[in-house]
């Protein structure tokens, strides 16, 4: 018969305990506020770094897609020399190294430069015959670029004076930054989480201390362990969640400010494909991450304190 009490707490009781936990928040304003702010700041830094990392990742993807090797032929290159290069590229397509390529004839190049310059004086005397032919080659994997470029330099028709264009350096630089961001992210995650957990745990400890008489009586009267613990757990979860909520709004505004600033800087620097993405598409994902993180941190913090100081 007495086993019946084991089953679980009644809904009414859970309501009562959740209310108790919520009211604890008010009773201990100073420490609670400190904990909430810590959680908010922790998440804010994590979130900004996370968002920047997401941006870098997507920009790197875009770059990888757009990356091509530009090969100019000598202006004096013969049809045979051009065919040599074309045959080489075709063989690379069969090997799966090159995904596609585009050939730009003298005429097309001339049209392009005409459109770009729009200045009759500069174009005077210029004919398609002065323009070099060129190949734009897309690789299946940027890692294979070194081999392809060194092969291409060996053809007599290829102009090596200007070098073979390839923006792999920029890609590698961005990938390096992304890697660094990931390390910073992990570092922040660990350090800031520990600080937040510690502060929440300390806040709960103070509540436990403030309510030690009630807890003692509860134990003597025969309250279940869960009954005594639940209000403190609720308090911790709430601190975490409120912190996450505040942080989410902070992050949202800070990110949009950063987005506009960086976008105009990137534009001024002449990067047209590098862009900071909008916040809205990731808003929900960020919110969920924040809420989960806040609640987990709050839960761990209060659990630690309850185990150590409640002794039930």
């Amino acid at each position: 018969m007495r086993r019946k009490v084991y089953i679980s707490m009644k809904i009414r009781t859970i309501k009562l305990l959740v209310k108790e936990g919520t009211s604890n928040i008010y009773k201990n304003k100073l420490m609670t506020t400190a904990s909430i702010i810590t959680v908010a700041i922790t998440l804010f830094f994590l979130g900004i770094v996370l968002l920047l990392a997401i941006n870098l990742t997507s920009n790197i993807e875009v770059m990888k897609r757009d990356l091509d090797i530009t090969v100019f032929l000598n202006v004096s290159a013969t049809d045979f020399e051009r065919e040599e290069v074309a045959t080489y590229i075709d063989s690379k397509i069969e090997e799966g190294v090159v995904s596609q390529y585009r050939f730009e004839s003298r005429e097309v190049a001339f049209e392009n430069i005409k459109n770009e310059l729009k200045n009759e004086a500069l174009l005077k005397g210029l004919t398609p015959a002065h323009m070099p032919e060129s190949f734009y080659i897309k690789l299946t994997d940027p890692e294979l670029s070194d081999q392809v470029i060194s092969d291409l330099t060996k053809f007599s028709g290829v102009n090596t004076e200007y070098g073979i264009g390839y923006n792999k350096d920029r890609l590698e630089r961005l990938e390096g930054i992304l890697k660094a961001f990931n390390y910073v992210l992990i570092f922040l995650l660990v350090v800031l989480s520990i600080i937040a957990i510690f502060l929440i745990s300390n806040t709960i400890r103070l509540t436990v201390y403030a309510r030690r008489r009630e807890i003692e009586i509860m134990k003597y009267v025969g309250a279940l362990d869960g009954f005594i613990r639940l209000p403190f757990i609720v308090e911790g979860l709430l601190i975490g969640f409120i912190g996450a909520l505040i942080s989410y709004f902070l992050t949202h505004h800070a990110y949009e400010w950063l987005q506009h600033m960086l976008n105009s800087i990137l534009l001024n620097l002449g990067y047209t494909t590098l862009r900071m993405m909008e916040f809205a598409p990731v808003a929900f994902r960020i919110f969920v991450i924040y809420a989960i993180f806040g609640v987990v941190i709050g839960g761990i913090g209060s659990m630690m304190s309850v185990r150590k100081h409640l002794n039930v």
Binding site: K10, L16, I217, V221, A223
Partner: peptide
């Protein structure tokens, strides 16, 4: 005695029943 100072006599006694999940 160990009574809760912020609860009335009635509430102190009722508290013991709430803890064991008695109905209102």
């Amino acid at each position: 005695f160990r009574l809760l100072p912020n609860k009335t006599a009635y509430e102190n006694v009722a508290f013991a029943m709430q803890i064991v999940e008695a109905s209102p």
